[in-house]
Simulated assay, not measured.
Amino acid sequence: MNEFEYRLQRFAEGGESGGGESEGGEASGSILGGASSDPQLPEPAGETNSSGEEGTEGSAPQKGEAGEGAPETYDFKAIVPEGMEYDEKSAGEYSALARECGLTQEQASKIASYGMNLMKGNAEAAMQAMQQQRAQWAENAKTELGADFAPTVAKCGVAMEALDRKIPGLRQAFDETGAGNRIEVIKAMAMLGELIGEDRGHSAGGGAGGEAPIYGNTNFNLY
């Protein structure tokens, strides 16, 4: 990848919106959260003279020469795809390179538009693949647990309710990352929920005064 393509890619990536959210702006849920290409751009071919060398008449300006059609400043705000943000710094770097190559506003805009739409398409494809992976994790968990799915999720709910009070945002973290659909995480949270349930049972009607801690009978040094 040459310097021009590298700068173009940086310009496109700079405006890419981030997030772990779906296109509608809502994070995909999870079982635990709810528990109670690099194509090369063609280089313009110059005309050749009788000796086989590239001529200057009618050809694109050579690198290092500002072309007659190159403006002092470029404006790319109108071509930013929906859902992407305009990056002033990256646009400035790309503008300097476009001016050096003698590109007109129209030529520079066409290349920039191609690059940004390419990056947006790649980002959307990656997001779709991630959502499909999360859905597959959920199906795998339901299949593996079978008839134990509902009671296992109920145990997870006990752990989630206890931990969510101590760690605000835990449910959201499981939803955003998709980890709440992994069978390994579900089993671990179910085990913790079962321990918490046993502690509550042991402490019921226990000592006088004050509320018994929810982990009072759990020795975490054993885990």
Score class of each variant (00 low, 15 high):
97 L>H: 02
136 Q>L: 11
86 Y>F: 06
132 Q>D: 15
114 Y>P: 09
100 E>P: 09
103 L>I: 10
139 E>N: 15
137 W>H: 02
82 E>V: 02
137 W>N: 03
102 G>D: 06
96 A>K: 15
130 M>A: 00
117 N>T: 14
107 Q>L: 02
132 Q>V: 14
136 Q>E: 15
96 A>H: 10
84 M>D: 03
132 Q>W: 05
82 E>K: 01
128 Q>M: 10
102 G>M: 09
123 A>Y: 01
86 Y>V: 00
131 Q>R: 11
122 N>R: 12
139 E>F: 07
136 Q>I: 04
95 S>T: 02
94 Y>N: 10
140 N>T: 15
95 S>C: 11
103 L>P: 00
104 T>G: 07
85 E>I: 12
90 S>G: 10
115 G>V: 05
88 E>H: 08
118 L>G: 03
128 Q>N: 13
100 E>S: 09
120 K>N: 00
109 S>A: 13
93 E>I: 03
114 Y>D: 13
141 A>P: 10
98 A>H: 08
125 A>N: 13
116 M>H: 02
113 S>K: 00
103 L>S: 02
91 A>H: 03
114 Y>Q: 07
94 Y>F: 11
85 E>P: 07
85 E>F: 00
110 K>N: 15
124 E>L: 13
133 Q>F: 07
94 Y>E: 08
131 Q>K: 08
128 Q>K: 14
133 Q>M: 13
94 Y>W: 12
110 K>P: 02
84 M>N: 11
107 Q>G: 04
102 G>A: 14
117 N>H: 02
116 M>V: 01
82 E>S: 12
